[in-house]
């Protein structure tokens, strides 16, 4: 299959993730949308890596990105929990102490 189909798919996934980030109000849902964006990029890298004589380079890149996403999700969930414990809400509409 030509690589362009994969690129279109991953671009769509990326846009879905970005749309979710911009419209969702729940903090955990936003975190999931960010994961979708990261995985769209992973799919892109893997698809591209098949076009080159050394596909291992792209695979290693993706492995690093997966590990990085896990680390980011761990810290992010910790921050969300610490926020939730005090304010009993993770709705971003209520996060308005700091503005302008």
């Amino acid at each position: 299959m030509p690589v362009i189909y994969y690129v279109i798919l991953s671009s769509l996934l990326f846009c879905i993730g970005l749309y979710g980030v911009l419209t969702r109000k729940n903090a955990v849902a936003i975190l999931l949308c960010i994961e979708i964006m990261l995985n769209a990029a992973n799919l892109n890298i893997i698809a591209f890596s098949r076009c080159w004589p050394e596909p291992a380079r792209g695979t290693i890149f993706v492995l690093f990105v997966i590990g990085l996403a896990a680390a980011e999700a761990a810290v992010g969930l910790a921050i969300i929990i610490s926020y939730y414990r005090k304010s009993e809400a993770i709705d971003l509409d209520n996060i308005n102490l700091l503005k302008w």
């Binding site: 690589v3 690129v7 991953s10 990326f14 993730g17 970005l18 980030v21 903090a27 936003i30 975190l31 960010i34 964006m37 990261l38 769209a40 990029a41 992973n42 892109n44 890298i45 698809a47 591209f48 890596s49 076009c51 380079r57 792209g58 890149f61 990105v65 990085l68 980011e72 810290v75 992010g76 921050i79 969300i80 926020y83 996060i95 700091l98």
Partner: peptide, 23 residues
């Protein structure tokens, strides 16, 4: 919380940009 969300989104955008350069 705000810094985390902005930072995570920027990281995702950066990886996407890198994927095109790599490809």
């Amino acid at each position: 919380l705000k810094y985390f969300f902005y930072g995570a989104i920027s990281a995702a955008i950066l990886v996407m940009g890198f994927s095109f350069l790599y490809g």
